[in-house]
Nucleic acid binder design. Structure first.
Lengths: 211, 211
DNA sequence: AGAAATTTGTTATTTTTTTCACACTGTTAG
DNA sequence: CTAACAGTGTGAAAAAAATAACAAATTTCT
């Protein structure tokens, strides 16, 4: 397999989640149009994505839920699992920890960091909180590959630098402040304000078009 | 102006945020490649986006920060402002409220909802918390157009239905569960797990390529 | 058994988004 | 004054992503 499109990667992750729910319900097979409906996309797109990863369903029966989950796992998960840290134990950081707590997954949140002494030393949902000053030590020690930044915007740059220095390989930045990383580090930025403004924009547009 | 591409809308929102920071610093002009660098995109793309909204800069001086901020506002903001509600006062809901608190913006969070009696009646950062049962009353009353869903996944569907029934026009779903809305409601879903899995995937890929 | 219906897999097409290439124009240096 | 430079604006091309169209295969119906 050469290059999976970026968008396909995202969708595979989403398909898997939908499929896991189906599996829990005891559903053994699923049609492309069922997956499509859940994800608000077209059935063709689902089939194309699955074609790209080389999975073929059963004609008239659809896709085998269990098999597909496993295949997606082989594609997007890494063999050994990946350790993740959350930097910034504010509301957002805590939300993420709860989110992930107890989820079977190859992604394990193994540490969190904060500068607030009241938080350092505590454990939340099994995740210990360390001082941000110790990132340089803990990150290599625990073999942490990915960092999720949920610090206040004003600390975004310095936190990024510290993460990079500590040898992190990927950063997911939830700070509203864009940061810069060397090209060997994969960076994904997500900005809640942008999403909200986008929704507002299209709401406005819909209203206008109704007139 | 006909149709701005989806992606352009998102970027405009981001440009504006970067520009606001520049403005605060006292910077009066900015080059396309400076904006580009902040957003990790190319200068051509910035120029093209600005072309699409009909803004023209000054040759050799770049773009006037203040003017551009205002123009972007005219394009993406709505005249009257838009009222927003947060449904689910868990960690994520609180994170969002803090995020927006005190931000000058045409988007105003005017209410939050929860089912926990301890939270109902409280005010956080100036935002009152109501019972989820009262959405049908409060949403029209306060003219709330957009709802941000930060409830646990298992309540996603029923919350969506209640929002739609209450007359909401746009939903931003932070729940990991995809929901369905009638087509006159604009829906945006964002899934943190997908983002994290994507980062992990590309980290893995980078490591493989290094071999 | 044959026809109708349904669903997959894939090629071709279209649409959307990004990038290239370059004309144009002030600005600065000599 | 002129040449080199550094920026903008934009048509054209390329790349990425989504959609359409349809053959093939299996099930169901009659």
């Amino acid at each position: 397999m050469k290059h999976l499109p970026h968008k396909t990667i995202e969708r595979l992750s989403q398909y898997r989640r939908a499929l896991l729910i189906c599996l829990d319900k005891g559903q053994t097979h699923i049609y492309s149009h069922e997956i499509a409906k859940i994800q608000h996309i077209t059935a063709v797109q689902v089939r194309r994505d699955l074609m790209l990863i080389g999975y073929t369903g059963t004609l008239r029966k659809g896709y085998n839920v269990k098999e597909l989950i496993e295949l997606i796992g082989e594609i997007i998960d890494s063999q050994e699992g990946i350790n993740v840290a959350i930097i910034g134990m504010g509301n957002l950081g805590r939300a993420l920890i709860n989110y992930f707590a107890g989820k079977r997954s190859h992604l394990k949140i193994v540490a969190s960091f904060d500068i607030n002494p009241d938080k350092i030393g505590n454990t939340m949902s099994g995740v210990p909180c360390f001082s941000s000053d110790d990132m340089g030590k803990i990150i290599p020690e625990k073999n942490i590959k990915v960092g999720i930044m949920t610090v206040p915007a004003e600390f975004a740059s310095q936190t990024t630098d510290a993460l990079v220095k500590a040898g992190i390989k990927g950063i997911l930045n939830y700070t509203p402040k864009p940061v810069t990383v060397p090209k060997e580090v994969y960076l994904e930025e997500y900005d809640m304000i942008t999403s909200l403004e986008k929704v507002a924009f299209y709401v406005k547009l819909n209203e206008k078009e109704e007139e």
